[in-house]
Simulated assay, not measured.
Amino acid sequence: MRPQEVQGLRSGCCPEPQPTTDGAATRHLIRSKHYKNVADGDGNHISAGEDREVPWVAITPVVHAIRVLERMVPDGELLLSARHHAFASQGGHHGALKGGSLNDRIERFVVWVNREATSLGLSRQTVPEDPHGAIGMSRFRRTLAWHIARRPGGLVALAIQYGHMRTVLDARTSSGYGSRSRNGIHSVLDVETALAAADTAARLSDRMASGEKISGPAARRAVAAAATTPRFEGRIVPAKFARKAAAFLARDGVVLYDNPDAHLICAFKHDNALCEPEPGATAPRQYACQPGCGNTVRTDTHARQLRTRADEIDQLAANSPGPLGKRLRANADRLRATADAHDTTAQPAKALT
């Protein structure tokens, strides 16, 4: 959430999910207003905001935090109401706590955590000093979970959760971020994508150095990419890195994308892709990966993963009804056949250079 969206949350914004008739699992959803780029028909900004069309999905710690705040304010009141949280003077407060007050409380919370951790002998659980200064509310939104971005379709999940319309991984045809353009969430996602691709190239290089063989129609391109892609060593990512990330991703044919669900690496070349990427896209639709694609690369590790997954599917098939079990066993056989094809065609990296 943006800081203003957090400040606009009210008691009751996250009701307990209602059970479904079929017993399916449900999630806590937070419903509130958003304020950025909200305008009337004449283009005038609406300061009261409007209801956010897509709710936020809340994990358990967030739900617990909301429940605590709901015990501190009346029903329907702002969760961070200044009237109930500004203790210095109870009179004359309206609306939510201001950003400066919330930033100050975050810093005080860090001090409290460190004091408690030290007194309990838990030095490894202290909050280290941040080299970039105070931890303000505006910084939380840009602290993306790297493991989400690295899953197939992960950038889509981030786009949805962050309220943006970049559901095509690389299309910049949607309206902006503030205009939702490159300078907003797109550049952040470019950085995450570029770092993930660099990690993929580094892992491939390490596997080949350890003696693993490689197969697939894009094997030769992948070997070259792994040899030339810079290894990310955990340095601080400056603001200008976003431009470098976009340029890095635009190198058609030599950027490597890991796809753990398909047990392969995609050496993405737009004209070869069977996942039907948008015109001008520089990343594959990893959630739409197709067999037989000319961008496919596999290592011995992928072949082992394919066989492990086939064994898991066979166990599931043994406890499934007849027709479903038959389809599952056929799927397992296809995975083993793919692994066998790798073993037959795989070559060492030296043979491909």
Rank of each mutant, 00 (worst) to 15 (best):
L264F: 01
D104S: 13
K269N: 04
N37S: 13
S123G: 05
R180A: 15
A310E: 02
Y35I: 05
A134M: 06
V111Q: 13
N103I: 06
S215G: 14
Q7F: 07
T345H: 11
V191E: 03
G294R: 04
R83N: 00
V168N: 13
A242W: 00
A318M: 10
I135C: 00
L264I: 08
A25S: 12
H147G: 02
L158I: 15
P61S: 07
G216S: 03
V254F: 03
T229C: 05
P230C: 03
F109M: 14
N183T: 14
T296A: 11
A346H: 06
G95C: 08
V255D: 00
E129F: 00
G43K: 07
R142V: 11
A159T: 08
I46Y: 07
G178Q: 15
G292D: 04
A239L: 09
G234Y: 03
A341G: 13
R220F: 01
R182L: 13
S47F: 09
S11P: 05
S179I: 10
L264W: 06
A145V: 10
P15L: 08
E16Y: 02
W112T: 13
K350R: 14
V237Q: 01
A159L: 06
A58D: 01
R83Q: 03
A318W: 09
S11C: 06
G8M: 03
K269I: 00
P277H: 08
T338E: 14
A117M: 13
A24C: 09
P128W: 04
N259H: 09
V68N: 02
L249C: 02
R182P: 12
I135R: 12
Y287W: 14
V38D: 04
L195S: 06
Y287V: 12
A242M: 04
V188K: 11
A281G: 14
V127H: 06
G211F: 06
P323R: 15
P19V: 07
A65Y: 05
Q347M: 13
S205V: 00
R329Q: 11
P348G: 11
P279D: 11
H94C: 00
A332Q: 02
L256S: 01
A117C: 10
L328W: 04
R180W: 13
N295F: 01
C13V: 06
V254Y: 05
D42P: 00
R10P: 04
D271K: 09
A58G: 05
R180D: 15
V168C: 08
E192R: 09
Q161D: 15
G43L: 07
T200V: 04
A318V: 05
R231C: 04
Q7K: 10
I135W: 08
W146M: 10
A224E: 11
G49T: 03
S32R: 09
A310F: 01
G92Q: 00
G178M: 11
R142I: 09
L69I: 07
A39E: 15
G121Q: 07
A227V: 02
E278Y: 13
T308S: 12
